[in-house]
Design a protein around this nucleic acid. Structure first.
Lengths: 218, 218
DNA sequence: AGTGAAGCGGAAAGAAGGTTCCGGTTCACA
DNA sequence: TGTGAACCGGAACCTTCTTTCCGCTTCACT
C-alpha cells in the first residue's frame, strides 16, 4: 500500500513472499517509528509484523533505506504545503500558515519530526528535506520581508530552528501546546517600528546543525 | 572544594581517603555531567578521576544522590537570580533579565539543563528546582502583568517551557544562538493593544511534564 | 607496631540492545 | 512435479553499559 511491489531498486523483482513482507515491514515501521521515533528497534518492528528480525534486516540492511522509503512522501507533502503557502495573497499570513500546517504534520509523528531534523544534519536524508525545503522557505521569508510585515533580520534558518523546536516540544498527547508557542512566535516575528535588531550569531547553518544534533540527543 | 569533608549525612565521618575520593568524584562528575549530561557512565567518571568504578558506586549508589550533591548550589544560584530579578524597578525588564541570566548558566552545562528539566518531572529532584523556583517565577509574571507590560495570558508554565526549549537548543559551541531566540520571544511576550489571546491548551503542568519528558528523550 | 574495620580496584557477572548466520522452507520456473 | 535459488525464522553472538563482589590495601586507634 505504501509503495507498489517493485524491484530492489536495480535488480530483478523480489519474490512474491519477499515483496509481501517488504510491504508489511513498511506498514509496521510507519506505526512503530511514529510512536517510538527512528531509533526504534528492528525487533519491535519484526514482532509487531509477526515475522523474524532477520527478515527485516535482510530487506533493509541500512536503517536509512527504510527511513527514506517511509518518509519520502511525507516530506513531499510538506514541500507542497510550502509551495501553496507561497501563493497566498498575504505574505506574512502565508508564512504563518506554512508553519502551522507543517507543525500539524510533524507533531503527529515522532518519526517525521526526526526525519525533518536529521534531513538537515545527516547527509543520507538531506535529499528528502533541506534541499527541497530550503529554497521554498527562503522564498517565503524574502516575500514577507519585501512586504514589510516580517522583521528584516529573520533568516530562513531562524524559522527552521523554531519549527524544529516547536515540534520537539509537543507530543500527540498534548496536541495544542505548539499552537500557543507558534502564536507567541508570530508576534515576535512581526516587523514593528523602532525594533532593536536581533543579536547576531555564529554562521546560521552551523548553528542549525548544532541545534539538530542537540534536539536528537547526543 | 565542592563541599567540605563531611559525614555521610548521618553516620560517622568518612575515613580520610574516602572523603578525598568523594571530593574527587564530585569534581570529576561536575565536568563529565557538564559535557555528557546526567546519563554519563560511572565508568567514565571513574576513569577520569583515576579511581575504580566500585569506588564511585560505593560512595553514590544512587545516581540521584550524586546529582543532588552536585547541583544543589547551582540551582540555588538560579533561584537567587530570580529573587534579584524581582527587585528590579521595571517588571518586564526584570523578567527578561532573569531569563537571560538563567539561560547563561544552563547553556554552559548540559547537566544543569537536565537537572532543571528533570526537577520538574522526577520526584527525586523536585525539591531542588520547581518548588523553589515556581513561586518566584509566578511573582515575576504577576508583577509584569500588573504593570501592563507582559501579555496577560502568559503563564509561569509558558516561561518555564520556553526556558527549557531555549536551553535545549543551544550548546557551548554556539553560545549566542539562544540570545537570538530570547530576543524574539521577548518581542512576543510584550503586551500590545488589540492582541488576540493565545490559544488555550490542556492543563499547563501536564503539558510541561510532557515537554520535559520529550526534551530529555524517552 | 599491631589490629581490624573501612575502603580500594578492577575482574566478572548481568542486562539490554543490535546484528549475523544457518538449517529448513517456500517460491519460480522448467 | 522436480530443482535450485531466494527467502524465512529466531537462536546465537556481539557490543555496550551497569552493577556486584572479593582479595588486597589503607587508615584510625591503641
Amino acid at each position: 500500500m505504501i509503495s507498489e511491489t517493485r524491484a530492489t531498486d536495480e535488480c530483478r523483482p523480489l519474490r512474491a513472499d519477499a515483496a509481501r513482507n517488504r510491504e508489511l515491514i513498511l506498514e509496521t515501521a510507519a506505526q512503530v517509528f511514529a510512536e517510538h521515533g527512528l531509533e526504534a528497534g528492528y525487533d519491535e518492528i519484526a514482532r509487531r509484523a509477526g515475522i523474524g528480525v532477520g527478515t527485516v534486516y535482510r530487506r533493509f540492511p541500512q536503517r536509512a533505506e527504510l527511513v527514506q522509503a517511509l518518509f519520502e512522501s511525507r516530506i513531499a507533502e510538506i514541500v507542497a504545503i510550502a509551495g501553496q503557502a507561497a501563493e497566498r495573497p498575504d505574505a506574512f499570513d502565508g508564512l504563518a500558515w506554512f508553519l502551522e500546517k507543517a507543525l500539524e504534520r510533524q507533531v503527529a509523528d515522532r518519526g517525521l519530526k526526526e526525519v525533518m531534523a536529521s534531513s538537515i544534519v545527516h547527509d543520507q536524508h538531506r535529499v528528502i528535506g533541506r534541499e527541497r525545503l530550503g529554497p521554498i522557505l527562503e522564498n517565503l521569508v524574502a516575500r514577507a520581508q519585501a512586504a514589510g510585515t516580517l522583521r528584516p533580520d529573520i533568516t530562513p534558518t531562524d524559522l527552521g530552528m523554531q519549527l524544529m523546536v516547536m515540534s520537539s516540544m509537543t507530543t500527540a498527547e498534548q496536541p495544542d501546546l505548539w499552537r500557543r508557542c507558534l502564536a507567541l512566535l508570530l508576534e515576535g516575528l512581526r516587523q514593528r517600528p523602532g525594533q532593536e535588531p536581533l543579536p547576531l550569531c555564529a554562521p546560521a547553518d552551523e548553528a542549525m546543525q548544532h541545534l539538530m544534533c542537540n534536539l536528537q540527543g547526543r
